[in-house]
């Protein structure tokens, strides 16, 4: 957020207010998600995180930034992409804040706004995974990796070949993709569900902040 945009202390820019609405509306669907307002900034999350040393914003700072009204910076950080979903932060938080689930929410918001990290293509793997799964109903690892390397650079795929060969020798590589019987029904479910997964800021306007009990200013 640019300094020039801030006029009155506590006043959020329009963009930030939109982000906040989207964020709060999403967080209230997490069981216990509203606990985020109870953060005591103790840093247990950061201390428990095996990857915090690689993050530009630590998990503790992430909650602090949300409270300071700067979700924009969080979305642009590499933190949300470095998270390996080990849930250590969430398990140990003395205030029961759902840190990992909140990071998922932020990841979804970043994906919706096409804000991606530099250097490590987590979103490409996600896209490949979803593509592979939506097509067959089950996941086929070789196919997932092929999709992934088409997106991120074929040359990288060559470094995986020795491993693929070792797996194949042990009979652990299934080259034909398994398909579920009711694939048409499965696709119907996905098509319907995708209507609900519209970009959050569009779908969210109906709710506003009361469900979380945390007032969005601006």
């Amino acid at each position: 957020m640019k300094i020039a945009e801030i006029q009155i202390p506590g006043m959020l820019s329009r963009k930030e207010a939109d982000l906040r609405t989207a964020f709060l509306n999403s967080v209230h669907l997490i069981p216990g998600g509203d606990k985020i307002k109870a953060c005591i900034q103790c840093g247990t999350c950061t201390g428990s995180c095996p990857l915090s040393y690689l993050m530009d914003i630590t998990p503790r700072e992430l909650v602090a930034l949300f409270r300071a009204g700067d979700i924009d910076s969080i979305i642009k950080s590499r933190t949300i992409w470095v998270c390996a979903s080990c849930y250590s932060c969430q398990t140990r938080c003395p205030q029961s804040i759902k840190v990992t689930d909140i990071i998922y929410t932020l990841k979804r918001m970043a994906m919706n706004r096409k804000v991606y990290p530099k250097k490590f293509p987590v979103h490409s793997l996600s896209d490949s995974f979803i593509k592979s799964m939506n097509a067959f109903g089950r996941l086929n690892e070789p196919r997932l990796m092929v999709y992934y390397f088409i997106k991120t650079g074929i040359w990288k795929g060559f470094s995986f070949l020795p491993l693929a060969l070792r797996l194949m020798k042990k009979g652990r590589l299934e080259l034909t993709a398994p398909k579920i019987k009711d694939i048409n029904g499965f696709r119907k479910i996905i098509k319907k569900a995708q209507e609900f997964d519209m970009p959050l800021e569009i779908a969210a306007r109906a709710y506003r902040e009361e469900a979380v009990g945390y007032k969005a200013v601006g």
């Binding site: 979903s85 998922y104 979804r108 996600s126 995974f129 979803i130 569900a193 997964d197």
Partner: peptide, 11 residues
């Protein structure tokens, strides 16, 4: 898996 969950919720 974790991947789908972290990207598209309802789906």
């Amino acid at each position: 898996a974790t991947i789908y969950m972290s990207i598209k919720r309802t789906t």
